[in-house]
Design a protein around this nucleic acid. Structure first.
Lengths: 332, 332
DNA sequence: TTGAAAGCGCTACCAA
DNA sequence: TTGGTAGCGCTTTCAA
């Protein structure tokens, strides 16, 4: 059995109220009593039981974080940001992975509530109505984070996908490219991918370039990128390819490697996201850096602000992005 | 305010003891009372407060996981394993990152204790005496996980590094290579790196090959690998290079890419670990697959077994590894 | 089979 | 400045 407040009180010859006061520094305690109590605490190594504390104060110093999969480096990055800022405010992270299962998401939202988390961050590709209901039911601060889709209803932290794509396309154009293709997963209407496509289109149209060089993928991972190029016939006329996700770009890069297409000599490739592998592969990938770590950091900061009744500012926060010019794109 | 057991009791016209009994199925309750209580519970959506439960039962269903950095994919993989198996037994994960700071580690070990975690897993490169003391102080199940070093004192889950390195070297030899270099960080005597080196040496000596082609790095990341090769002069006579970590191998691969050395045509490269990027880069890296996910899974399973007073088996568990033959190595 | 009540370890109120 | 005590929401005796 661990040392409790009672033990300390007894050993110091004071009441438990007094011990509580010195531990929390909540009410004045005479110096000598304080010294004595502190001494005992140190001696016996007393640490207040946080569970008991939570029960009475309702402050668990816990933030629930529901994610898809830690194997996605951008998710891991967001979690890092969440955790690090959380720690600055003494908050701990209760982590739950769903692997994309909506049922699990629902379950965890409930579970985290019974664990008395003070706030919740959900990282998932899409939001469903069932989730909506659950969130509404418990009224704790909540932030939704996604690379793939938006939410009007809940607070989000992201970047301006439209302008980022616009800028990246402009950069490619400035490099001298005219036949620039866009590879992406455009099925879902409300996805960020559509915004990227619109950004690409505007940049192309502004320069009177053909913006119809679209290569639709069936998804957003490496294999999808590989396949998109593999299936397409008219890729020869392209000098550059703007991929809606780094993962797709890497698939494209792999396709090129396997088919003796030299990047960037034969074709320039650009991605979107700057996931960790983007700068590790060769050639290093030109891409838009989404500040995943910062996104996580800002998200939890927002929750902590809400908890502290501070002004939380905008509901939908847009963070700055960066065009990362690397080796996979070249002037022609 | 959330619904409590009292509300349910009042609404169902029974005592809170009875409600507790039906919720926990702990003692016989008459069918009709049970039905009534269940009905009310459903109606008002009652969920027991886990914090209050923990206070009385001492079961928090929380496992503390202290890690270095989620940005290392192998750490993320271990955490995935931990979390997934944890969930199977209703355990949740309280995650703390230290970024290698020993002070933080110490702090978190304490903190997690005050949060009443039932067990703890520490993922870190090395173990220190201070940590030792802390662990001993709180007596909860503990497992130490590391790719870099061993611990006699605490339960571990890993692979047999010596044999894995031996086998990988043999594989290279079987490919026809004779001048096989070893690149690694050999400073720390108790590291797994030494075991790998010994495995390499034994394989080389068994075939009467020169086992002195050692390239010492100053660390274990990509940059260290790049630099090791950059600094070395006599790399021309090598036909294969066995790198103690995938990260080092990737640094080597990058060096080759930048210096027009073709892999595997000019030189075969092998790594160790099979971290996620190993199969994503081109050429795909030949390496030893350490089952990080399983290591995490087995670690938490061990803790849960200990908690359940089940037989936990060996203190140091060795999991099977796999030699991954990929494109970075070739027959000569 | 049920309810009353003690108590988990703590905070916070009230009275002294 | 201090101590006594109620009570957070729950489980678990003990009696009925």
């Amino acid at each position: 059995m661990a040392i409790t407040i009672k033990d300390v009180a007894r050993l110091a010859g004071v009441s438990i109220s007094t011990v509580s006061r010195v531990v929390n520094d909540s009410k004045p305690v005479s110096p000598e009593v304080k010294r004595k109590v502190l001494e005992v605490i140190k001696e016996v190594g007393y640490k207040p039981n946080e569970v008991a504390r939570t029960l009475v104060t309702k402050k668990s110093y816990l933030i629930g974080v529901i994610i898809t999969d830690l194997a996605d480096s951008y998710v891991a990055d967001m979690v890092r940001g969440i955790e690090e800022v959380g720690k600055m405010y003494n908050y701990d992270i209760l982590l739950c992975s769903t692997y994309g299962d909506k049922e699990e998401e629902l379950k965890y939202i409930q579970l985290l509530n019974t664990k008395q988390v003070e706030g919740m961050i959900l990282i998932s590709d899409t939001l469903s109505d069932e989730i909506d209901e659950r969130i509404d039911e418990y009224d704790i601060p909540f932030v939704y984070l996604s690379r793939y889709s938006n939410s009007d209803k809940y607070p989000t932290v992201s970047i301006d996908y439209y302008f980022a794509a616009y800028e990246l396309t402009k950069y490619l154009i400035k490099l001298g490219h005219e036949n620039i293709g866009f590879v992406g997963f455009l099925e879902d209407e409300s996805s960020t991918q559509i915004e990227k496509y619109e950004g690409y289109r505007r940049a192309m149209e502004e320069m009177k370039l053909d913006s119809s060089l679209i290569y639709e993928t069936k998804g957003t991972n490496i294999a999808h990128g590989y396949k998109a190029l593999n299936d397409s016939i008219e890729k020869d006329k392209l000098t550059a390819l703007f991929c809606g996700y780094d993962e797709i770009a890497i698939g494209v890069l792999n396709y090129c490697y396997d088919n003796n297409l030299n990047v960037p000599e034969d074709i320039s490739i650009a991605g979107f996201g700057d996931i960790s592998i983007a700068s590790l592969i060769r050639p290093k990938l030109t891409t838009v850096k989404e500040p995943f770590y910062d996104i996580g950091a800002v998200a939890i900061r927002k929750i902590i602000k809400t908890l502290g009744k501070e002004d939380v500012g905008e509901k939908h926060i847009k963070l700055p992005y960066l065009i990362q010019q690397r080796d996979s794109s070249i002037k022609i």
